[in-house]
């Protein structure tokens, strides 16, 4: 049981960004991807989520053996995939509570309605965990939210939807240290043998709070190095140039 990415090639506007990326995240594990700006981290997450700007030219992505590249965007989500966006979109006029509710509703069979009372109870409990003010239920999705509030809101959705595989794209950017702790606590509480995480980050700091089982280095559209959590520290210390020179030497 895993999220498996095999020899993935993807282009945007005919420029190849992912160049044969291979990665497997078994359930129960947390994997981190680190990489310099522009190396293709967000591209990877959006390709997996099914964004139409990106064309997959080769390779496969499966969850628990099921090919998701054949699925529509919404089907992938309902199949258990979740992407916490680096830049979450604003949806004016749609309240946060209605948005999350519609997402949960879409997982129910036709004719079955969400129990509103139970829904709000659950929502408020999770907002309390994330130290989010109640006012965010009535506000339009992400509209006028600060960077940190948007990130918290992504994690709130993740907690509500209880996905099998979570991809978090630079969730730490825009969070101050207190917010980072709160968010990490929420994520850590979700860690379970039935769930896999792919944590994308530019900085090692996040990995002090969400401790990964495996760290991968993404460079120029490929995983060029994998190791244990100490790799993140080494990378932080030596910088991404270290990877570059190592690669050149090889």
């Amino acid at each position: 049981m895993s999220l498996k990415i095999d020899n993935l090639h993807a282009s945007v506007e005919d420029i190849e960004i992912l160049k044969g990326l291979t990665l497997e995240i078994p359930k129960g594990e947390v994997h981190a991807i680190m990489g310099p700006n522009g190396s293709g981290k967000s591209t990877l997450s959006k390709v997996i989520a099914g964004h139409e700007d990106y064309e997959v030219t080769e390779g496969s992505v499966t969850i628990d053996g099921e090919d998701i590249l054949e699925m529509e965007i919404d089907e992938r989500s309902r199949a258990g995939l979740f992407l916490a966006f680096q830049y979450p979109h604003e949806v004016p006029g749609v309240s946060n509570a209605n948005f999350i509710r519609a997402a949960l509703q879409s997982r129910l069979p036709d004719g079955e309605e969400i129990d509103a009372v139970a829904y709000y109870k659950d929502l408020y409990a999770k907002m309390d965990e994330l130290e989010m003010d109640r006012k965010f239920t009535g506000r339009s999705v992400n509209e006028g939210f600060s960077g940190g509030e948007k990130k918290r809101n992504e994690i709130l959705q993740m907690m509500m939807l209880e996905p099998k595989y979570c991809i978090m794209d630079e969730t730490d950017s825009g969070l101050d240290i207190d917010a980072l702790r709160v968010v990490a606590k929420g994520v850590n509480a979700m860690r379970s043998p039935d769930r896999g995480f792919l944590v994308i980050t530019h900085y090692q700091r996040l990995l002090d709070y969400i401790v990964p089982d495996v760290v991968h280095v993404l460079y120029d559209g490929k995983i060029v190095k994998s190791g244990e959590k100490d790799l993140a520290l080494e990378l932080e210390e030596k910088g991404y140039d270290w990877v570059k020179t190592e690669l050149a030497a090889a």
Binding site: H51, E52, S77, L83, F85, V91, N98, L161
Partner: peptide, 19 residues
């Protein structure tokens, strides 16, 4: 916006209507 809603499992038609 449609992508964002669909990425949460909401089908395309419903996403358009909500937006």
């Amino acid at each position: 916006e449609i992508f964002y809603l669909m990425a949460r499992g909401i089908p395309a038609e419903r996403a358009r209507r909500m937006i």
